[in-house]
């Protein structure tokens, strides 16, 4: 993959997001900050998939909310096609909304129970006054076919669909405005095992057809490996490892990523070979550990880890790791 030749679609540059922890509402005092995302940079190229992996509290949801323009970064900026995405208003914001869409984890919560599937899919078309009624209806029918549903199912309400079908409706709704990027927040983890493969195949087919880029937020490494071209691993608001997916899975470097790999329970019997079982819990992002944030749980901890924060740097071209072991 020649990086220079391909066009960068989205750039996240040195983004921080601190949530003020306050007391009182009308006359509030700030008691501290939760550093949900702390100096994160990555790029997504047009038509490719970036996998964002980490456990709860690592900041992956905050990142995706900032990319969806539901949240403003405290510092740093995010660019889509070299245009900053925050501070947009009115028509410019509406235009941005047509370019970046989302599918969320829980298909039981992501569809308005009072709207038909057709109305849900048409939402962004109606908001942007994309066309008249007939034109929209034709587009909805086409989208339903594309996600493997029947056009007449536009009349059905969400409760008339199964979980897998609902997730297809959610995907059709995200595709309606022909976005360039779709944020997929755990798109298959709420689905049954036998339905997941259907959904993943569908996502891949649609990407091939439409050249849409995905930001895949997930905790399951096997899903990320299967779906994404690049992978970013996060821990407590920081990127700990970033590489092309194949390179990362062939040569895991960071101790946290190694621990995640150990934790993946592979559907294969008798595998107890060299694994890292992390002790303790993820520390609170309100008061993260000094130095390397992972040092409290790291099996390879050294004295300098608690004092000095490791920089994210390339260990091989394109494969970056933030760990003192590789200095």
């Amino acid at each position: 993959m020649s990086a220079a030749a391909e066009k960068q679609l989205l750039r996240v540059a040195n983004v921080r997001k601190y949530f003020a922890f306050t007391k009182g509402i009308l006359f509030s005092r700030t008691l501290g900050h939760v550093k949900a995302v702390d100096d994160i940079s990555f790029e997504i190229r047009a038509g490719e998939t970036l996998g964002l992996v980490g456990e709860s509290g690592c900041g992956k949801t905050t990142i995706s909310r900032m990319i969806l323009n539901l949240e403003e970064p405290t510092e740093g900026y995010i660019l889509l096609d070299d245009e900053p995405i925050h501070g947009l208003e009115g028509e410019a914001l509406k235009a941005y909304r047509t370019k970046v869409q989302a599918v969320f984890q829980d298909p039981w919560s992501s569809l308005n129970p009072r709207m038909t599937a057709g109305r849900i899919i048409a939402e962004s078309l109606i908001v942007t006054k994309w066309g008249d009624k007939d034109k929209i209806a034709a587009r909805v029918a086409e989208l339903l076919k594309q996600v493997g549903l029947r056009p007449d199912q536009a009349q059905q309400y969400p409760h008339e669909f199964s979980g897998g079908q609902r997730q297809r409706v959610a995907l059709a709704a995200a595709l309606a405005s022909s976005p360039k990027l779709i944020v997929l927040d755990e798109p298959v983890s709420a689905l049954d095992v036998s339905i997941r493969a259907q959904m993943m195949n569908l996502l891949k087919d649609i990407q091939a057809e439409r050249n849409v880029a995905y930001l895949l937020v997930a905790h399951d490494l096997a899903t990320v490996r299967h779906m994404s071209d690049h992978t970013v691993v996060m821990y407590l608001g920081k990127i700990v490892e970033k590489a092309p997916t194949q390179a990362l899975f062939d040569d895991v470097r960071h101790p946290y990523t190694k621990a995640l790999f150990s934790a993946v329970l592979i559907a294969r019997a008798n595998q107890e070979d060299e694994e890292i079982v992390l002790q303790g819990e993820v520390p609170s992002p309100l008061n993260p550990p000094s130095g390397c944030r992972f040092h409290t749980r790291c099996p390879y901890v050294m004295p300098r880890c608690s004092q000095e924060e490791p920089k994210l740097r390339d260990v091989t071209p394109g494969h970056a790791v933030a760990c003192h072991l590789f200095d």
């Binding site: 969806l68 323009n69 539901l70 914001l93 509406k94 909304r97 047509t98 970046v100 869409q101 989302a102 969320f104 984890q105 829980d106 919560s109 992501s110 569809l111 308005n112 129970p113 009072r114 709207m115 849900i120 939402e123 962004s124 908001v127 942007t128 959610a170 709704a173 405005s177």
Partner: peptide, 26 residues
């Protein structure tokens, strides 16, 4: 807190529209 309200924002709905078409019917 339901995702469909968040998604309505992502689709480009204004706050007024979200309240009228997503919140009130529910």
């Amino acid at each position: 807190q339901r995702d469909f309200v968040q998604l309505a924002r992502v689709r480009g709905c204004s706050s007024l529209r979200i309240m009228a078409t997503h919140i009130v019917p529910n």
